[in-house]
């Protein structure tokens, strides 16, 4: 008769030791670093590749984009506002030494959204609400010069290139993953990296625009008019607790913090002695009346 018994078996043979929180930190930081590194690499290569695309091609893609917003937003074909904005943009293009082949076209659309943006193929879109909010020509000139600078440095095509590469890479990675939380983590890590590139571009455009304003007027008075409006609108929105959220212009989405932006620009003015004193009375040109 054999003997039957059950003796105690030691713990931790089937269960690994080690703290799960340590495991978690190691895994999530590692993953984030890999993803951010990948996104960074993709963005750098897109930024390097995009300007190599001939402007002619970009122009033809831009035509498709143009058709789209013409349909969507119902642009008026010709009006005094557009003509006025176009004349300013042409002047800015000259000041920024933009070659003739890179023709820039302004579109003026009726919209409650305070917005101005540059897109593929040298198109700049300005909304009627933005024109209402800037109180004088100098402020408007700064905004336009900012958008023209985007086109000069070919930022729209770079952004598109980054977006395309990023979408391909993320769908390749996320495609294997079924979990929503992890997919959004991957997406988030990539998007944050892309945004930092976008903010760098904004700074570059701001700098160039400020220089253009100085070249044209001989001072930078009133250049910050629109940024000051933005800062106020943001302040108002945060105080209202999101009630006035619609008032935050879309202009800001991938942009640096407006206050920091203003401070940086003011520093540039002081460093370059473009204006005797920031406190000096603003000398501005009035906007023409379009009524």
């Amino acid at each position: 008769m054999p003997q039957y018994s059950n003796s105690e078996i030691p713990e931790h043979i089937n269960v690994s030791r080690g703290s799960p929180i340590k495991d978690f930190i190691k895994l999530s930081l590692g993953l984030l670093a890999i993803l951010a590194g990948l996104a960074y690499f993709l963005a750098v290569s897109a930024n390097w590749l995009a300007p190599k695309i001939p402007y002619r091609w970009e122009k033809s893609w831009g035509t498709a984009v143009e058709g789209l917003f013409r349909e969507e937003l119902g642009e008026e074909k010709e009006n005094p506002q557009r003509a006025y904005l176009q004349s300013k943009v042409d002047l800015i293009a000259q000041l920024q030494n933009i070659p003739e082949s890179m023709a820039i076209e302004v579109h003026y659309i009726e919209s409650d959204l305070v917005n101005a943006f540059a897109t593929l193929g040298g198109h700049i879109i300005v909304t009627s609400a933005l024109l209402d909010k800037v109180s004088h020509e100098n402020g408007l000139f700064m905004v336009l010069a900012h958008e023209v600078a985007h086109i000069k440095y070919r930022h729209p095509i770079q952004a598109v290139g980054r977006g395309v590469l990023f979408s391909i890479a993320s769908s390749a990675i996320i495609g294997q993953q079924k979990s929503e939380s992890l997919s959004s983590l991957i997406w988030g890590a990539g998007t944050l990296t892309l945004m930092s590139f976008s903010r760098d571009q904004e700074e570059q455009a701001d700098h160039e625009a400020l220089k253009t304003v100085y070249d044209h007027y001989g001072h930078t008075s009133g250049a910050f008019n629109f940024f000051e409006y933005l800062a106020e609108a943001e302040q108002g929105a945060s105080e209202e607790g999101g009630k006035e959220a619609r008032e935050i212009p879309v202009f800001l989405s991938t942009h640096p913090n407006t206050r920091e932006r203003l401070a940086n620009l003011k520093n540039i003015v002081i460093e370059n002695r473009w204006q005797a004193s920031l406190a000096e009375p603003v000398k501005v040109e009035t906007l023409p009346s379009f009524d």
Partner: peptide, 25 residues
């Protein structure tokens, strides 16, 4: 929730999913 997420992260990299070992045990 924590361990499930940990297992998810792990499934991304591969290797031993220690967070589920104790559950099964």
């Amino acid at each position: 929730y924590f361990k499930r997420f940990l297992a998810l992260l792990r499934s991304f990299i591969g290797g031993r999913v220690s967070s589920y070992e104790s559950l099964l045990d």
